[in-house]
Write a protein that binds this DNA or RNA. Structure first.
Lengths: 144, 144
DNA sequence: CTTGTTGCAAATATTTTGCACCCAT
DNA sequence: ATGGGTGCAAAATATTTGCAACAAG
């Protein structure tokens, strides 16, 4: 399939750090990564990169629309590949497990809510914080 | 009206910093405040308080259920009084203007989405990022 | 070549923690 | 009086920036 989420189209030069970061997002099993995650993974992979560069690249990619930034509940930002198809998130408060969903009806209601007020909706973020109750959830039924 | 969002009921002692912080939330025209906001307002009000104390008090109040913490888009947390009635937020990307809303249908859909997956929903956050287009919005129709 | 990009170190920004002193109960 | 609470300073975290060296177009 053509270029791997074309870098050229963004006006950014195709440098090693940038290619490696994109590669990570495209191949990692985890879709949502923090700057620290990426830095560690690349270092572990013997790529000589600086944490500052990771931050810079992530910021550039976000502005270029290649990545999407989220904050979820914590203080640190996580990024995911922007695959066009918008979706929202379910986050397990116990184990951090993350799932995505999309609901037409919710999208529709959001639009009317903004429209009713004469606002132009640019974007939204919706996170559902849950206990996932999966068998492998570390904190499953922690108590009782 | 009885006690001002009763502190005693939380098991926390009624100290000056705590009372002043609560007072701020109850009387300020701005409902959403950062630790820094609060610190500055109290200092400006000649209350001798430390920023660390503000952080501690906010954390305690959040755990006690008196305040709700949000992250919106920025890196810093904002707090608002927990008035029982849950609601979501509309945030103007241009001027920071904030409005609240509540939509039965969205609430309902969220519950089913979690339920469908066998998840127990604890909480959620929904922010709509908009251009508010109000006359006094500093960046109103910045361009065209 | 020339300008964008990088790694490093230092700077910021936000929030947390250790500790000795202080004050509500 | 006594255990929780406070201010201050220092630590911890997360992210940004200055700068000289470097590399892509």
């Amino acid at each position: 399939m053509s270029t791997p989420t074309n870098l050229k189209s963004t006006g950014l030069k195709a440098t090693l750090p940038r290619l490696k970061v994109l590669e990570l997002f495209e191949h990692s099993t985890k879709q949502h990564l923090t700057a620290e995650d990426i830095y560690r993974m690349l270092i572990a992979d013997d790529i000589d990169i600086g944490l500052a560069t990771v931050y810079r690249v992530l910021t550039q990619f976000e502005q270029a629309g290649l990545l999407i930034r989220h904050h979820f509940d914590s203080d640190k930002a996580v990024y995911e590949l922007n695959v066009g198809q918008h979706h929202d998130h379910l986050v397990c408060l116990q184990c951090g497990h993350l799932e995505e969903f999309f609901d037409e009806e919710i999208e529709r209601r959001q639009k009317s809510i903004a429209a009713e007020r004469g606002f132009t909706i640019h974007d939204h973020s919706l996170h559902l914080y849950v206990d996932c109750n999966r068998v492998n959830c570390p904190h499953r039924s922690a108590i009782k």
